[in-house]
Write a protein that binds this DNA or RNA. Structure first.
Length: 194
DNA sequence: GTCGAGATTATCT
DNA sequence: GATAATCTCGACC
């Protein structure tokens, strides 16, 4: 698995579809991901070089990169590419296949089970991933990643939610499994301002 | 179902 | 002080 994760995020992302990620009693099957590169990718946090936060992205593959966004939400990434090269795959959405009760108790706002892990922030809440899980090694931590046995059929398109110049639609690096109800329909994101 | 607006805080300049 | 890889809610179709 570490061989696969040493590839660039754009290669790893489609292979993560159908994979399961387990944190404690909750297991999620991934249905939607997004690839981020490093210094060549204006949409990436690593675009302007390493900072204390993005350091994990430049480290060895197979680690977890977490960050806060809009002050309220946590997003989780799997670090790719060899040590020294920044690259990561954002876990955007999935389907809870185990521990539904627990996930539901953490997500008081969603009514249907389909929405439990629909979206990056929700996915982290459902799994119980927080900022303190950042930098964890997936091989030894309480977070475990298990790849699908066979590559899954997928579609790809522009990334969502990325603000800034080339970040938005310049790179078609969002990957999802067609026909999955837990995948959000694509909508161009308009950056908000106060 | 879609659309628009506001919430809230770690991180960087 | 500005910014942000989002979510929820309320209004409308």
């Amino acid at each position: 698995m570490i061989e696969l994760l040493s590839l660039p995020a754009t290669e790893v992302a489609p292979r993560l579809l159908g994979a399961t990620i387990t944190v404690g009693a909750v297991t999620v099957r991934l249905t939607e991901v997004e690839a981020y590169l490093g210094e060549d990718d204006p949409g990436s946090h690593a675009f302007r070089g390493p900072t204390p936060r993005t350091m994990v992205m430049f480290g060895p593959p197979g680690h977890l990169y977490t960050y806060f966004t809009y002050g309220m939400h946590v997003c989780a990434n799997v670090v790719c590419s060899p040590d020294g090269v920044a690259s990561a795959v954002l876990l955007r959405a999935g389907e809870v296949v185990e521990g539904v009760e627990l996930a539901r108790s953490r997500r008081t706002t969603s009514r249907s089970d389909r929405d439990l892990a629909r979206g990056p922030g929700r996915l982290c809440v459902a799994l119980g991933i927080t900022l303190t899980d950042g930098g964890a090694d997936l091989a030894v931590s309480r977070i475990r990643l298990e790849l699908a046995e066979e590559p899954q059929a997928f579609e790809q398109g522009p990334r969502t939610g990325v603000s800034g110049d080339g970040g938005r639609a310049s790179f078609p690096w969002r990957f999802w499994m067609p026909g999955e109800p837990s995948v959000l329909p694509y909508k161009a994101h308009v950056p908000r301002h106060r």
